[in-house]
Design a protein around this nucleic acid. Sequence first.
DNA 1: TTTATTTGCGAAACCGGTTGCGTGTTACCA
DNA 2: TGGTAACACGCAACCGGTTTCGCAAATAAA
Lengths: 345, 345
Amino acid sequence: MIIQNPTTIKTIAAKLGISKGTVSKALQDSHEISIATKNRVLEAASELHYKPNHFASGLKSRKSKAIAVIVPEIADSFFSLAIKGIETITQKKGYHINIYITNDQISKEKEIFKLLSDGRVDGVLISICRDATCSDHIKELMDIGIPLVFFDRAVENIETGRVVTDDFTSGYNAARHLIEQGCKRVCFFSISENLSILQKRVEGFKQALSENNIIDACNNVYQISTDGNKCIETITSLLSDPDLRPDGIVISVELLTIPIYMACKALNISIPEDLKVICFSNLQYASLLSPPLTTITQPAFEIGEQAASLICSAITNNRSLKNEKIICPSRLDVRNSSLVTGNWA
Amino acid sequence: MIIQNPTTIKTIAAKLGISKGTVSKALQDSHEISIATKNRVLEAASELHYKPNHFASGLKSRKSKAIAVIVPEIADSFFSLAIKGIETITQKKGYHINIYITNDQISKEKEIFKLLSDGRVDGVLISICRDATCSDHIKELMDIGIPLVFFDRAVENIETGRVVTDDFTSGYNAARHLIEQGCKRVCFFSISENLSILQKRVEGFKQALSENNIIDACNNVYQISTDGNKCIETITSLLSDPDLRPDGIVISVELLTIPIYMACKALNISIPEDLKVICFSNLQYASLLSPPLTTITQPAFEIGEQAASLICSAITNNRSLKNEKIICPSRLDVRNSSLVTGNWA
DNA sequence: TTTATTTGCGAAACCGGTTGCGTGTTACCA
DNA sequence: TGGTAACACGCAACCGGTTTCGCAAATAAA
């Protein structure tokens, strides 16, 4: 094993008896170098397996050709698809992506931002964490000139690019669909009061309810803990209390699907006869579940692509991101979990 | 917006009236700097929001504190979980991870390796792509001194670290389970003849068959295209041909699950009565499918953790990776898709 | 007091590629 | 043939930390 690749621009210069600068310019196809010299340099470079040093070029150019992608979770069909969308674009444009996972913890999100201030990345794509109570760390990084684009989970009061879905409309459509299926007591299961996208979904949800004169005195929006045991407990108690028990649920995030299906099975509540369910989800397997799950399907891949395109053009063209808001509409995929007739295969 | 963070080591030196070198040493807590000076430097640094420049330090140290993670796919429960495992370790040890997706294309894999030769990463974790016919690009990168660890999909004849599951045993157990459930004609659905881990699963599978005197004259290992339409076609024709049609299938990879369930539904083949199915899969939703899917569950998260630990110690301790092979055993999760009685909820 | 030793810091080279400027050569035109 | 411009390349500073070396002052030992 060779310990290091020792071929530098100096090696080539020495071999050809020319100067460092000439080699550098030749490699950049500069007009001030003759074709003959360029060819000699190119040949020597390939012969010596020359690879430009990332640190040396970055030191001058202040560009890393890397983008940070910060997500709360990666073992999730929305985020993994979004990352895939991001990658297709960044790969084409010659950018590398650094992945950071916050596990929905603001403390970790802050640590990550500290790491990013050393010029390691040229831009940031982020879906913020659930308990994001403050966003100073985000502003600080933007203040030192690093462009940032939110995708899906965004901070409202930071002026920069954002790529989201039509959350209000989706929440509205979800609720309306359940009402159309005859639900009388519709609930919304959420995981955070802080995330603006969830607030908007709730607003749409409430709009649909009020349009249909469903004005339930008691609150019908529930914040469910995502901690394994607590989650099941809360759901179980909600579904088993005859006074609270809904006949339709809009689930705001995919990760609540499993506990709800499990709780229903345990409580002998059958979907959709006793309870109709619709979920914001990108699960490929939705149609194979028992019963097949009605979903609000976000265009995760496209959201990733759009966000990546935005950040790339901000970096290369110095494009301003203020007022850049891209909305990729979601799709309602009706399946058996929300239908009146329980006839599925 | 401040255009750039202009605070360098020189800024601090100028402010305090000392030299660059002294500041640098003070920041590293060098023994040759007095405590008084260190404190002054530290204070000035925090006051000026000093952040060491990644390129400058990397240029000297030749370390990027970054690791490349190369996977064929990311919207897949095994790989996303493995990445999550990797991230937990690298985050603790202060490493960044760069994600690259090959989409199972050797051409893209090669391009990625070209990009990595500029010193951008200190090490590589890779699960190779399906049609990996040659591995020269991998050897070349290792030759310039970059350590590499395979996880899950490995190249057999490259001597370096690898973290895999007990593929032979898992294949054996999967087949034996189906035989115990009364299957007479058991098939193995694979996606590649090149991947050694799949070869081993097939070997285990065949071993179980021969131990039970199931020696089928015609070949019972099928290579299924993963191209959407072709995939369904192949599966449909296999399942509808009375001479070929199996009563038990071992599915080697998760992504074949959906087409097989779909094909069965379309052909009115009921699982498990007509066909018992077991799949190598990390799907969280396996128990919610209709019918619940029996899986060989790989410890994806742990595989990621182990691979990350290995590469980190190779980088920091210069630990040799030859003969480093870690095997994380898989688990058989029996559910209704492979059971004799079809009584599921 | 003299000689060693330690302590604290500055000067400068270095990592590897980039770039502005200057210079020598050739070519072209008057 | 003299003057000018285009051409091709070398030189050296620069990016921002790191590190070696050397020196002076302070302290310790003799």
